[in-house]
Design a protein around this nucleic acid. Structure first.
Length: 577
DNA sequence: GCCGTTTTCGGCCCGACTGTTTTCAGTCG
């Protein structure tokens, strides 16, 4: 039974939860939480490494004790320490912490007084009216918990970034019209371009707080006001998104923006750096004693602790502060760096627009080349192409290219990688193409070993150029298939293949962590729209966000090359074989 | 439980809002 990094992180997270309910030292708890986050974000498979007898790398915040526990979990799949905690605390009790308004103290009180161990028992207790009389509780708290339990069961917890974007823009435009408002920015995970957001965090610079919070809570898409003060307010929109607002004075705007952009781990690391310099950072500014020395801009906040500006996408406490200090921050790829797109569909398979319309739409987006990569015959539900139809499409592409110098179409195919790792079309059909994009569309449930072997074999094919959506996940609806990404990345480098970062908002795989692994291994990533209609080229923006989170620079991204520079790289695999 | 330009011991980020209190604890971000 393989133990993934996420499994190890989950054990540490559960230990932290239980220690917290137990009332343990807060910094000990934080150590477990930090370790969980570090392990979750770590690119290489720690259990694999340990079981091969390799030395555990030095991870920040993981000392002798946690290293030993990490190794134990990696080898055995569980932790004696956690098992011991479970003797005192029922396993399901940590789920109670998911309920807004319930923290460790109240969970302990519920357990000690009413023996509440599960969400179901909590629900029964609040329905029976037994909670209000507990110490520290009251009728309002009881009612809030009752609502929160119901909400927890009915609502999805996180939203895709692209889902949240239009709501964020509309609300920002509304708030900008408030008299006295100078700046409106959506901070938080939205600004860090995380693939999903739990809520939207608005930071507003304005002369008067109450005027803004009042207008905010009166927004006509608000279904519920969760809290409202003079500088802060929280609401839920009818679409289900929670929105938090914070209003600050202009001189504090940068400090507030920095603080509410997070991530929390990044903020804490920055504050600690300030502390070491005798400074204090809060959302109002950077202070030496009572004197504010910075805070109007984010740049001034970083400058106060001798750091250059760190782009929001990097702010995850994954080494960006050390890089900033050393002057080695990446110069992150931008949308305007993209010269082309290597994955798109037309009405010939499951796209909606003609080849010509796709070409025109791509040109309007500033692209200079576009690969037409319809599905292959195995994907019959998508009217996949057989060799004859593929050859016909090639003729249409030649005709387009002869008449349209503004954008060049490349002949390609998104060929199915079959269960045994072979490709769905014969070499003779693939040979005339400019590029071959390989993808898995069937048998997602193979074991890790077989799925990995399947992909490795496909990468060995001399015509394969690019591995599309390498994990197959659909955010919120389908898990990634189980593969050894480190092996796939190393194999891609050996074969001269490239990996795709699919920019569809529900795919966005490679993930940020995988992008960084590819970068470290020297494998180029292609940021592709996988457009099925002319309007879909806008998705490239989301791919760029994910790539930036993965520390990718222009040079790491395949389709920032001009067509002349790109062409030899598309046939690199043949040269390598 | 971790860590060290002040440290191997004594620190560890910081403030607003709510609901409970009667001056503040708990929770959240």
């Amino acid at each position: 039974m393989p133990v993934h990094n996420a499994d190890i992180a989950a054990v540490f997270g559960e230990i932290a939860d239980l220690l917290e309910i137990q009332g343990a030292n807060a910094f000990r708890i934080r150590a477990y939480r930090n370790a969980a986050r570090t392990i979750n974000d770590y690119g290489r498979d720690l259990a694999g490494l340990i079981n091969r007898g390799e030395a555990l790398p030095k991870l920040p915040g993981i000392g002798a004790d946690l290293s030993a526990k990490l190794e134990e979990i990696a080898r055995t799949g569980h932790s004696v320490f956690l098992d011991r905690l479970h003797k005192d605390w029922p396993a399901a009790i940590t789920a109670l912490l998911q309920i807004p308004g319930l923290g460790p103290k109240r969970v302990k009180i519920l357990y000690d007084n009413l023996h509440v161990r599960t969400l179901e028992e909590l629900d029964a207790a609040v329905r029976a009216g037994r909670v209000a009389s507990l110490p520290g509780f009251g009728p309002r708290t009881e009612a809030n918990i009752r609502q929160a339990v119901a909400a927890h069961w009915s609502k999805a917890r996180r939203f895709r970034l692209a889902f949240a974007e239009p709501y964020a823009q509309a609300l920002a435009a509304y708030l900008e019209q408030t008299p006295g408002v100078r700046q409106v920015v959506v901070a938080g995970s939205f600004r860090r371009r995380q693939e999903t957001v739990g809520d939207l965090d608005f930071v507003v610079a304005a002369a008067s707080g109450p005027a803004v919070t009042k207008r905010f809570t009166a927004y006509d898409e608000v279904s519920e006001i969760l809290s409202g003060g003079t500088t802060r307010a929280s609401v839920r929109l009818r679409c289900g998104l929670q929105v938090d607002l914070r209003v600050v004075a202009e001189e504090s705007y940068g400090a507030a923006l920095h603080y509410f952009t997070g991530s929390r781990a990044h903020s804490i690391a920055v504050r600690r750096l300030a502390q070491a310099r005798g400074l204090k950072i809060n959302e109002y500014g950077v202070f030496r004693g009572k004197a504010r020395i910075a805070g109007a801009t984010e740049e001034s906040v970083y400058a106060a602790i001798d750091l250059p500006y760190i782009p929001p996408e990097l702010r995850e406490d994954r080494g960006e502060i050390d890089a900033a200090r050393a002057g080695t921050l990446p110069l992150l790829v931008e949308r305007r760096d993209l010269c082309g797109d290597l994955h798109s569909h037309t009405a010939a398979s499951d796209g909606r627009d003609s080849l010509e319309d796709m070409a025109r739409a791509a040109a309007l987006q500033g692209l200079r080349y576009l690969a037409i990569t319809d599905h292959s015959r195995h994907l019959s539900v998508a009217h996949g192409l057989d060799p004859r139809r593929l050859a016909q499409q090639g003729e249409a592409i030649d005709a387009w290219n002869a008449a349209h110098p503004e954008i060049t179409l490349l002949k390609g195919i998104e060929v199915d990688i079959l269960e045994d790792g072979s490709l769905d079309l014969p070499d003779a059909a693939l040979q005339p193409l400019d590029l071959v994009v390989g993808a898995i569309h069937s048998r997602f449930g193979l074991s890790r070993a077989r799925q990995t072997e399947r992909i490795l074999r496909a990468l060995d094919h001399p015509y394969l150029t690019l591995l599309a959506h390498p994990t197959g996940r659909l955010i919120g609806s389908r898990e990634a298939y189980d593969v050894d990404m480190a092996r796939i990345i190393r194999k891609a480098r050996a074969c001269g293949c490239h990996l795709e970062l699919n920019a569809q908002p529900e795919r966005l795989d490679l993930t940020d962590v995988h992008c960084r692994m590819a970068r470290d291994e020297g494998v180029a990533v292609s940021i592709d729209s996988d457009a099925h209609a002319g309007a879909d080229f806008r998705f490239l923006e989301y791919g760029i966000g994910q790539a930036r989170r993965g520390w990718l620079e222009r040079r790491h991204v395949l389709n920032t090359r001009t067509l002349a520079d790109l062409r030899p790289l598309l046939r690199q695999a043949q040269a390598a074989s």
